[in-house]
Design a protein around this nucleic acid. Structure first.
Lengths: 209, 209
DNA sequence: ATTTTTTTGGATTGTCAACTCCATTTTTTT
DNA sequence: AAAAAAATGGAGTTGACAATCCAAAAAAAT
């Protein structure tokens, strides 16, 4: 009788040490790919940053593409975790405003570099890497869902007019955020991010009672 | 007395044939880089697409980076020219709506592939290529300016309330457009683009008299 | 007409990046 | 304690890619 309980084909067993190494590789890759893009980051760069050898890296990831997929999952988690305190309570105009402020503040601290960790991966990979695209879409949908939850709560409470469509508003807000982050990265100033988010929040505000 | 009237340092004279070849190279590079990104496009790919030899390409462009700069200028022109019929008359809600429809229609025709020709270059190059970033920012500013002109016209005519800020609205609209194009590329459906633009147009609409 | 400049052909070079291989050490299992 | 599996070291292979070079054809200038 097999001990491995329903282990998917490729999923080897990893020791504690193995998991740590794997995690270190992903974190290093995520960092570099955020700064320089996927194709601007060589596997060797990742090796150096993570302090691992080539054989280690290829022991945990069949090829670069697979590492990239892991990075996408990782970055999605990172972004959602970092925003969690806000995302789980976006159910009032005040909460939305605080969220806006936190995002703007973060871009200031980053000196407007890097855009959105998921968005920039999406822009680079969507059209050429179908599996990456799927994963990225899933990430954005989780994000969208969090925003939607808050607006739906307001709607259910009667704090948004019946005609308001929380689903559309949530998606619109995410687009303004993404576009704002991109333009802020290009312009090297937070004006676009502020303009995009503020306009969208004002629009949501027109539905409040 | 010099014949060359104020010729900038690097600007060699080009014969008619030379200009054609140069233009063919840029167009080919722009096309490929739109489809596969800058680092996904090799100089050799461009040679094949444009039917030129290596020496020709390097005769007109010192290095790949210089070709990329030319592509940025070219794509900015292309985008603005393509939208010109709309951009020069964005001075009514009807005009804005038609513009929205045209953009959505284009993405449908493209099957949601490719995002924004300028936006995707911006995402790939902004943080690592300072000169490219500057050029891209200039391109976006022209675009922003066109939108602003229309809204300012409405404002001056008294069709927008005095409190409305056409500058902010124009920038916000551009961010919604960029974010919408990105998410549409990732989701492979036009819903995000529609949601972003419609919300922003509705917001502008709240200022009409 | 002839000199100069521009344009083109195409082979070549050097670098770098992804990935492989085999041996060795460490950890886990029995 | 022995056997099996996992983790690591690091040199080596292969291919792709940016960029160069030398020579020749075509066009423009004088």
């Amino acid at each position: 009788m097999e001990k491995q309980v329903e282990n998917k084909k490729n999923e080897r067993r990893l020791t504690k040490k193995g998991k740590e190494t794997r995690a270190r590789i992903i974190a290093a890759a995520a960092q570099l790919m955020f700064e320089r893009g996927v194709s601007g980051t060589s596997v060797e760069d990742v090796q150096n940053e993570a302090k691992v050898s080539a054989s280690q890296l290829y022991h945990y990831f069949k090829e670069k593409r697979e590492l990239v997929k892991a990075v996408i999952v990782y970055q999605t988690e990172q972004v959602l975790n970092a925003q969690e305190p806000f995302l789980s309570h976006l159910d009032s105009m005040e909460a939305l405003k605080s969220w806006r402020d936190a995002i703007v503040q973060l871009q200031i601290e980053r000196q407007c570099q890097g855009g959105c960790p998921i968005g920039s991966l999406a822009s680079e990979l969507s059209d050429t890497e179908p599996e990456a695209r799927t994963e990225l879409a899933a990430g954005f949908m989780k994000w969208e869902q969090s925003i939607r939850n808050g607006l739906q709560t307001m709607h259910a409470r009667g704090e948004l007019q019946a005609e308001a469509k929380p689903d559309d508003l949530a998606l619109a807000l995410l687009t303004a955020l993404q576009g704002g982050l991109l333009l802020t990265q290009v312009y090297k100033e937070t004006r676009p991010l502020k303009a995009g988010l503020d306009a969208m929040l004002a629009h949501i505000g027109t539905f409040t009672i």
